[in-house]
Nucleic acid binder design. Structure first.
Length: 247
DNA sequence: TAAGAGTGGCCCTTCTGCTT
DNA sequence: AAGCAGAAGGGCCACTCTTA
């Protein structure tokens, strides 16, 4: 079988070195901002504010009628987006029963969030302050409001590695290992179930124990070259904070 | 069984108009 | 006049369904 992944892997002496390279190609968010944003989302959910999700037509959503729930049908994604943009319209996510609104470009809410919490503009073409990095969701349940826009569920991954996280687990053992390690790092850094105050990540969504152990070691790593990377606040944001004096 | 058509997911870029 | 956010649009490609 011809496998383009082999071309990439062959640049490294071992799978360990390959995995290390991929992890070094990722920026994670600092846990304090992740926690703050999680609080904001919980507040929005509590207030009945519609939470962004990526649109799908797979029956993941419902509209409440007098006695039953019906699945809304839209002719296009655009139509769906327009519908939930109207504050008079209510669409809910079936599994969580959270009110949702459909994201207009499939990653707009994450982009806005990253901007609001770090000052960086990602995936914004010429006006970006971060280039050649892709927003990558860690758990791909992007039609679920608890997963789509929270910072704990995505990171910025360099272009040349981004496709790895989109592949299926069984496409190569190293793919599952990388994806599990990213999940483990998210769990160790952010503790999503705690900051969301509910069980978001269930047992079957958990990475292996080996991955958890590897994540712990990476996070505690003293060696600069092996440490995981964090998105720092942009120049612009730091200036704003200086002006305000504190915050 | 395989090609072809259709659909949808993913996530990026350009355009435009508003703000400063 | 520049910078930026939001709206709109697009490329790529995997997957599924249909047809032969």
């Amino acid at each position: 079988m011809l496998d383009g992944l082999k071309a990439f892997k062959s640049l490294f002496p071992t799978d360990d070195a390959f995995v290390e390279h991929v992890i070094q190609s990722i920026y994670f968010f600092e846990s304090n901002i992740v926690q703050h944003q999680a609080e904001a989302i919980r507040k929005d959910i509590h207030n009945g504010t519609a939470i962004p999700v990526r649109y799908t037509s797979n029956g993941a959503f419902y509209i409440q009628r007098k006695v039953n729930k019906i699945t809304p049908t839209f002719n296009s994604k655009g139509e769906a987006v327009k519908f939930t943009a109207n504050d008079q319209n209510f669409v809910h996510h079936r599994e969580t029963e959270i009110r949702v609104k459909f994201d207009k470009d499939g990653n707009y809410a994450p982009k806005q969030t990253i901007r609001d919490y770090t000052g960086h503009w990602v995936s914004g073409g010429a006006s970006s302050t971060v280039v050649n990095y892709v927003i990558a969701h860690t758990w791909n349940k992007t039609d679920n409001p608890l997963y789509f826009s929270p910072l704990w569920n995505y990171c910025l991954i360099a272009y040349h590695c981004a496709y790895l996280t989109d592949k299926k687990d069984d496409s190569d053992p190293v793919i599952k290992r990388i994806k599990d390690l990213i999940k483990a790092i998210s769990l160790e850094l952010y503790h999503p179930n705690e900051i969301m105050k509910q069980t978001v990540i269930t047992v079957e969504d958990m990475p292996t124990q080996e991955a958890m152990e590897e994540a712990r070691q990476l996070i505690q790593e003293k060696n600069q070259e092996k440490k995981i990377h964090f998105v720092l606040k942009s120049e612009r944001d730091r200036k704003n904070i200086d002006k305000e004096g504190s915050n």
